Amino acid sequence: MKKIFLITLFFVGAFVAQAQELKWHTDVKEAVAISNKEKKPLLLFFTGSDWCGWCIRLQNEVLKTPEFSKWASENVILVELDYPRRTAQTPEIKNQNAELQQAFGIQGFPTIYFTSAESKEGKVNFKGLGQTGYVSGGAAAWLTVAEQIVHPKKS
């Protein structure tokens, strides 16, 4: 009986973990194509994943929660633009991220920028919707801010 319970618990745990797994894109052009296909805005997460304390805190308090996973899967296409100090990146990703940091005027981390985008003649045109960063109060507080940016009230 104990074995059946443990096996069941294992499968339920594996299913829940898989259901909460979000796809964070690192290739912006690929993410733009998906964004246009699914008609969802992009969430660009500018982060220093291996050195920025506030970025790590945002990850743990918000971006790795079930509440965020549910909201994100319904509302946005996720893009991680990382600026690590100890983690290796391909030259293409480094160049892409540097160009986007400059284009969006990102001066501090974490910054989350919501935008829609379209590709025309090989160039990506972004239309900013708003931005935020770390918001104290956990996932509920952060999601309230994000929801106001992604779905502003019509006046």
Rank of each mutant, 00 (worst) to 15 (best):
G138S: 03
G133P: 08
K23Y: 00
Y134T: 02
A146R: 01
Q59F: 06
K40H: 09
V32Q: 02
G137D: 12
L78W: 04
K39I: 02
H25S: 13
K29C: 00
F46A: 07
E74F: 06
Q131R: 09
K2Q: 08
W54T: 10
T8Y: 01
V79P: 06
E121I: 00
P41Y: 11
K127V: 02
N95H: 09
E147R: 04
K94I: 15
L58S: 07
Q131F: 01
A14Y: 08
V76R: 06
L42G: 03
F114Q: 03
Q107C: 00
S73M: 15
Q18E: 08
R86F: 11
L129K: 13
K23W: 00
L129F: 02
D82P: 14
K153S: 11
W54F: 13
A31V: 05
T26N: 14
T8G: 12
A88G: 06
C55L: 05
F45H: 15
G48Q: 08
H25W: 10
K40T: 11
V145R: 09
L42A: 10
K40S: 11
C55S: 15
E38A: 14
C52A: 08
A33Y: 02
A98N: 13
N97V: 07
D82K: 11
W142T: 01
K120Y: 02
W71C: 13
T132C: 03
G130N: 07
L100P: 07
P84W: 14
V124E: 02
F104Y: 09
N60M: 11
K29F: 14
A88W: 12
K39G: 00
F11K: 00
D82I: 04
K127W: 01
L143I: 04
L43N: 12
E38N: 10
N125E: 13
G122I: 06
L42W: 09
I112D: 05
K123H: 10
S73F: 05
V124D: 02
K64S: 15
I4S: 10
W142K: 01
A140Q: 13
N75T: 04
I93T: 11
E67N: 07
Q96N: 12
G122C: 01
H151K: 14
E80W: 03
A19E: 09
V76Y: 10
K29M: 09
Q89L: 15
G48E: 09
K29A: 12
R85V: 14
N75K: 07
V28F: 13
E92N: 04
S119N: 05
K64Y: 09
Q59S: 14
N97T: 06
W142H: 12
L63M: 15
F11D: 01
S136M: 05
T144F: 02
I77R: 03
S69E: 07
V16F: 12
E38T: 06
Y113M: 14
W24P: 04
S73A: 14
A31I: 06
T90V: 05
S49D: 03
Q89Y: 08
K40R: 13
V79L: 12
Q96S: 14
A88Q: 15
R85H: 11
A31F: 01
S73R: 15
I34E: 13
P84T: 10
P66L: 12
L22G: 12
Y113I: 06
S119E: 15
